[in-house]
Nucleic acid binder design. Sequence first.
DNA 1: AGAGTGATCATG
DNA 2: ATGATCACTCTC
Length: 199
Amino acid sequence: MHSRLSREFYQQDVLKLAKALLGKVFVRIDSGKRLAGMIVETEAYLGIPDKAAHTVGGRQTIRNQSMWEDGGILYVYFTYGMHHCMNVVAQQSNEPVAVLIHALEPLEGLRSMYPRRNAARKDQQLCSGPAKLCQAMNISKDQNGIDLVTNTNLWIEDHQIKVSGKQIASGPRIGVQYAQDWADKPYRFWIKDHCCVSK
DNA sequence: AGAGTGATCATG
DNA sequence: ATGATCACTCTC
């Protein structure tokens, strides 16, 4: 029960993975405490052709190196001088595609999330955005490049929560207006009517 | 609707 | 070396 997701799971097509991760449970051991949240919103970044992706045109930089690694590696980046965002790398090495974790429903360790989330007044505000959930789960560039298949402090579990295709909504990704013809592609996925998706 | 914040990137 | 940008969040 509650088995950890395997390498093969992460190596599937990035759009399929973005949908398959909905309902899975992200687990983080932070200072010996278990933090957990169910993934309720994701965004797929399709790599070299994707004008919204950090790896557009085959860009390979120090920042995005993790995206070039094998499926199951974590890609954490820092932006706007303030925020961290967390991605799960999909497919195979040298296919620089990833799924941005956009929102979680907090399940365990809420008491230790609140002090890091000054603006949060309700549980559903703790992890309802890509940078919010990194703050709540205490994720920073220190976790960039870790392997979710083998790491002892960070992984994703299957709790056998069934999310059917009917429960999944899709729409344009957030914050990628600059991406021209890729800006409107419906690569954002969320669980319909879930209280913890980003606003 | 606007500010905050500094790493990152392309250019040269 | 420099300047523009940014897969965001908060408060007004």
